[in-house]
Every structure is written in C-alpha cells, then in structure tokens.
Lab assay of single mutants.
Amino acid sequence: EVTIKANLIFANGSTQTAEFKGTFEKATSEAYAYADTLKKDNGEYTVDVADKGYTLNIKFAG
C-alpha cells in the first residue's frame, strides 16, 4: 500500500491537501477522480507530478 499526496491549489490562492491510499494505480486514479469532481466549481486543472508520482500538485484555473 502506498499513499499519494495531492496538493490542491485553487485560483483564489487557498490550498488543501488530500491523501489517497491503496496500490499506486488505485490511489493515483482516486486522486485524479477527486480533482475531476472539483473541476465543476473550480475550473480546469493542471497537474505537476513530483516525488516520482507520489505527490501531485493540482492547480485549478478558477
């Protein structure tokens, strides 16, 4: 089991951190699915992958 950390960075400057656990593939998939649910209210997003994929910096356009 691994932990994927998602740093969520919103257009208004606020930030939030979420963690997803499971296999690497499952946790990564859940992180992207979570970002997709936030897209409606926060706009499109870009992802900067860090720490060999264990950290995702997800920035929303607003």
Rank of each mutant, 00 (worst) to 15 (best):
E1I: 06
V2M: 08
T3C: 04
T3D: 04
T3P: 04
T3I: 12
I4T: 01
K5Q: 10
A6N: 01
A6E: 03
A6G: 04
N7H: 14
N7G: 02
N7P: 01
L8V: 10
I9V: 14
F10A: 02
F10E: 02
F10R: 03
F10Y: 15
A11F: 12
N12H: 11
G13K: 13
G13Q: 10
S14V: 11
S14Y: 13
S14A: 13
Q16P: 02
T17C: 05
T17N: 12
E19V: 14
E19P: 04
E19F: 14
E19A: 09
E19T: 13
E19H: 13
K21Q: 11
G22T: 02
G22Y: 02
T23K: 05
F24R: 06
F24Q: 07
F24W: 15
E25T: 09
E25N: 08
E25L: 06
K26M: 15
K26I: 15
K26E: 15
K26F: 14
A27N: 01
A27M: 02
T28W: 13
S29N: 13
S29I: 10
S29H: 15
S29D: 11
E30R: 07
E30I: 08
E30W: 09
A31Y: 01
A31G: 03
Y32Q: 04
A33W: 06
A33E: 13
A33V: 07
Y34F: 12
A35G: 02
A35V: 15
A35H: 00
D36L: 06
T37A: 12
L38Q: 08
L38V: 04
L38K: 09
K39C: 04
K40C: 05
G43T: 02
G43R: 02
E44S: 15
E44A: 10
T46H: 09
V47K: 03
V47N: 02
V47I: 09
V47H: 03
D48Q: 07
D48M: 12
V49E: 08
D51F: 04
K52W: 08
G53M: 04
G53A: 04
G53R: 02
G53F: 03
Y54W: 10
Y54G: 04
T55N: 05
L56Q: 01
N57P: 00
N57F: 10
I58T: 01
I58N: 00
K59D: 03
K59C: 05
G62R: 10
